[in-house]
Structures are given as C-alpha cells and as structure tokens.
C-alpha cells in the first residue's frame, strides 16, 4: 500500500494536476530529509506546534495560579522542574502556554507581511519606471527606521495589546520581502517565458499573479522562515517593554522582563523563557537554511 503510494508520488509521468503537484512536494520533502540540520529545525517547530495545540497535556500546573509560598523555587525542585517565578507560578507550564502566544504572533505575521511585501515588490519590479521608483522609495523609508523603534512608535499610537503588536510587527516586516520579490522579479521579467505569455495576450495582473509570483515565492518563504526568529524576538522585546502582550499572559518576552529584577540571585526566571526563544529561533533558522536548498529554483533545476 505505502509502496504503491511512493511509486504514485515519484511517477515521472503523472496523470493529473494533483499528482504532479504532490509528486513535486514529495521530491522536495525527500531533498529536505537529506539535510539533517533542517530536519532538526523542523522537529523543533513541530514540537512547538504540538506544545501549543496540546498545552493542557504538557503543562503540569495552571500557568496563572499564584502560590506565594512556593515563589522563586530553583530548577529541579520536585513538581516544578524548571522552577517557579516570583509569584510562585510554574515556569515550565508558563512556557508551554506561552508557545500559543508565540505561535499566534508568528502565524499572523507570516500571513500578512510577506503578502504585502510580495505584492509591492512584484508590482514595482514588473512595471519598473515611475511605479518602481515610488514604491521602492516608500520601502526605503520603512527600511530606514530601526524595526523595533518603528514598532514601538506604532504600538505607542495604537495602544498596547497582542493584535496591535502583531500589526506593528507586520507593518515593519514587509520591506525586506518587497526587496527580495523585486530583485527576483527583475530577473524574471525579461525571461523568454514571460515574453511568451505576454505574446499570447496576457495582461499585467495575470502575469504578475500567475507567472512572476511563483518564481518569487521560494525566496520569500525562505526569508520568512529566517525572519521568524527576529519576529519572535521583536514580539518578546515589545512584551519586555510592556507594549505588547500584557501581564499576566505568559508571553516569553514578558517573562524575561519580569525575571530581570532578580537575574543575579534567581537566574532561572529569566533564563528559561530565554532558552525557549533561543531554541525556537534556532529551529526556524535551521529550517530556513534547509528550505533554501530545496526551494531555490536554481538548485531545483535537476
């Protein structure tokens, strides 16, 4: 059964659109599987997703229940093996529930910023001339501000909160995608296959959407996975500064922020969420590197 499924997937002459597409994905997966570091990255991210989805199963305590009798217990204490924070809440359980918030932010940013960037980049690259100049100057203006400062300013205007934090991050994250997409579009724009569809009477919208974007997508996806680490850090940074997620939600950045006060005596309160951020960032980076080898059209030619 599985044998014939594999055969069906790697059939060089697929008999339907769906089979062709699945076959391509299957080959990409096989290529990715060969890259051990990327698989490690993928494992970390899958684990993060599982943790978020089944948080009640993973967590040992309620993340919000305070127990002042047990505050600031060190790691290794029976029942609280990552220790407790200054309100006596179990750090492990908070990290597990925090994964939900992190994933929520990451997912929202991942579906908004790249789309804006792709749209602006491909339109600018395809039309060139004045359109390009105007769009790219706007991009430059956004790029000229340090991201965190811009996000801070936006949150200051919009007011703190998780949705506003996401909005601020997305609005500051799109310019690099626009640049990547534009660069890719410039190389694709003059290719023969674009000339060929133009010759068949296709309009600009159709060419950009159906022919240019698929070529930009891989580089943007790679960029997105590589940037996710940065997004988590900015979200954490906003939380740390009290402008993102509000207490008592167990957001990782917020947890570091509250642990800062006793960093020297009770190091684990800030360190444990820090390690979580580190591990997840690493996971996204490793996966992004692996995807580059798999998705990059230049390496997929064979």
């Amino acid at each position: 059964m599985t044998q014939s499924l594999f055969q069906w997937l790697s059939d060089p002459s697929p008999s339907s659109r769906a089979q062709a597409r699945l076959g391509q994905a299957w080959l990409a997966w096989l290529r990715l599987k060969r890259n051990h570091l990327a698989m490690l990255g993928l494992a970390i991210i899958v684990l993060l997703c599982a943790m978020a989805a089944f948080a009640p199963l993973f967590a040992t305590h309620d993340p919000f229940v305070q127990n002042l009798a047990q505050r600031l217990l060190p790691p290794g204490t029976p029942g609280h093996w990552l220790g407790t924070d200054d309100f006596g809440r179990d750090i492990w359980s908070r990290i597990v529930y925090g994964a939900r918030i992190t994933l929520y932010i990451v997912a929202l940013v991942a579906v908004t910023a790249p789309v804006i960037g792709l749209l602006i980049g491909t339109v600018a690259g395809y039309f060139g001339g004045i359109v390009d100049t105007v769009l790219m100057r706007i991009t430059d203006i956004f790029l000229a501000f340090p991201r965190l400062i811009l996000a801070l300013a936006l949150v200051a205007v919009l007011g703190p909160g998780i949705v506003n934090a996401v909005l601020a991050i997305a609005l500051t994250a799109w310019p690099p995608y626009a640049r990547v997409a534009r660069a890719e579009t410039l190389t694709v724009r003059n290719s023969d296959y674009i000339a060929a569809v133009r010759l068949q009477g296709a309009g600009a919208g159709r060419i950009i959407w159906g022919h240019v974007m698929p070529m930009c997508l891989p580089s943007v996806i790679i960029r997105v996975t590589l940037d996710m680490a940065g997004v988590i850090l900015i979200a954490a940074g906003l939380g740390f500064l009290g402008l993102g997620v509000q207490p008592p939600l167990p957001e990782w950045g917020l947890m570091i922020s509250s642990g800062r006060k006793f960093l020297f005596e009770q190091w684990w309160v800030a360190t444990m969420p820090g390690l979580a951020i580190f591990a997840v960032s690493l996971g996204f980076n490793l996966l992004g590197d692996g995807l580059r080898d798999v998705l990059d059209p230049r390496s997929a030619s064979r």
């Binding site: 659109r17 062709a20 290719s191 023969d192 296959y193 022919h211 070529m215 059209p297």
Partner: peptide
C-alpha cells in the same frame, strides 16, 4: 528558458 519552470506542461 522559454518554459515556465514552475508550471506543468498542461
């Protein structure tokens, strides 16, 4: 160079 690398022949 004249066929779109990410489109099937169809």
């Amino acid at each position: 160079a004249s066929l779109h690398p990410r489109h099937t022949i169809d």
